[in-house]
Amino acid sequence: MYDLGDFVEMKKPHPCGVNRWEITRMGADIKIKCTGCGHVVMLSRREFEKKLKRVLEKADNAE
């Protein structure tokens, strides 16, 4: 699964050419930030799961 701070790949790349996103907020909606240009997109959890391709890198939550 995915968690806050993870880097994910979506099915379609961002227009800036990068397809690496960081999850910055989780709840009923999920906010992701493009690692290339910094653009922020907010999607419903259902829409996010539909567009998610894979998790690239898990966050290091050493708490």
Rank of each mutant, 00 (worst) to 15 (best):
Asp29Asn: 11
His14Arg: 12
Gly5Leu: 10
Gly5Cys: 02
Leu4Gln: 03
Cys37Asn: 09
Arg45Thr: 11
Leu56Cys: 14
Lys50Trp: 02
Asp6Val: 08
Lys12Asp: 00
Asn19Leu: 02
Lys12Gly: 00
Asn61Thr: 15
Ser44Ala: 09
Thr35Tyr: 01
Lys31Gly: 01
Ala28Tyr: 11
Ile32Gln: 08
Glu9Met: 11
Cys34Thr: 02
Leu4Lys: 13
Leu4Glu: 04
Val41Ala: 09
Ile32Arg: 09
His39Lys: 10
Pro15Gly: 04
Glu63Trp: 03
Glu47Tyr: 01
Arg54Lys: 10
Ile32Gly: 06
Met1Lys: 15
Glu22Val: 14
Leu56Met: 15
Gly27Met: 05
Leu52Met: 08
Met10Tyr: 07
Ile32Asn: 03
Ile32Glu: 08
Ala28Asp: 14
Lys53Phe: 13
Asn19Arg: 10
Phe7Glu: 07
Asp3Ala: 13
Glu63His: 12
Val18Tyr: 13
Arg46Met: 04
Val8His: 01
Val41Leu: 09
Cys16Thr: 07
Lys31Arg: 05
Val18Glu: 13
Lys31Cys: 02
Lys31Tyr: 02
Ile23Cys: 02
Lys53Val: 11
Lys11Ser: 10
Lys33Asn: 10
Asp60Gln: 15
Met1His: 10
Arg25Asn: 14
Thr24Leu: 11
Met42Gly: 00
Lys11Gly: 00
Cys34Arg: 08
Met10Pro: 08
Val41Asp: 11
Asp3Trp: 00
Lys12Phe: 03
Arg25Asp: 02
Glu9Cys: 02
Leu43Tyr: 06
Ala62Met: 12
Val55Trp: 04
Arg20Asn: 10
Met26Asp: 01
Leu4Met: 12
Phe48Asn: 05
Val41Thr: 09
Met10Leu: 15
Leu43Lys: 09
Leu4Arg: 04
Asp60Arg: 15
Ile32Trp: 01
Val8Glu: 03
Asp60Cys: 08
Val41Pro: 00
Asp6Arg: 12
Lys11Phe: 01
Thr24Asn: 05
Ser44Trp: 06
Arg45Ile: 02
Lys12Gln: 03
Lys58Asn: 07
Ile32Leu: 09
His14Pro: 10
Gly38Tyr: 11
Met26Gly: 12
Glu47Ser: 07
Arg25Pro: 02
Met42Tyr: 00
Pro13Thr: 04
Arg46Thr: 05
Pro15Leu: 01
Gly27Phe: 07
Ala28Asn: 15
Leu52Asp: 06
Asp6Ser: 11
Val41Tyr: 12
Val40Ile: 10
Arg46Gly: 06
Asp6Trp: 03
Tyr2Glu: 09
Gly17Thr: 07
Ala59Ser: 13
Gly36Pro: 10
Val8Thr: 06
Trp21Ile: 04
Lys31Asn: 00
Gly38Glu: 07
Lys12His: 02
Lys12Met: 00
Lys11Asp: 05
Ile23Arg: 05
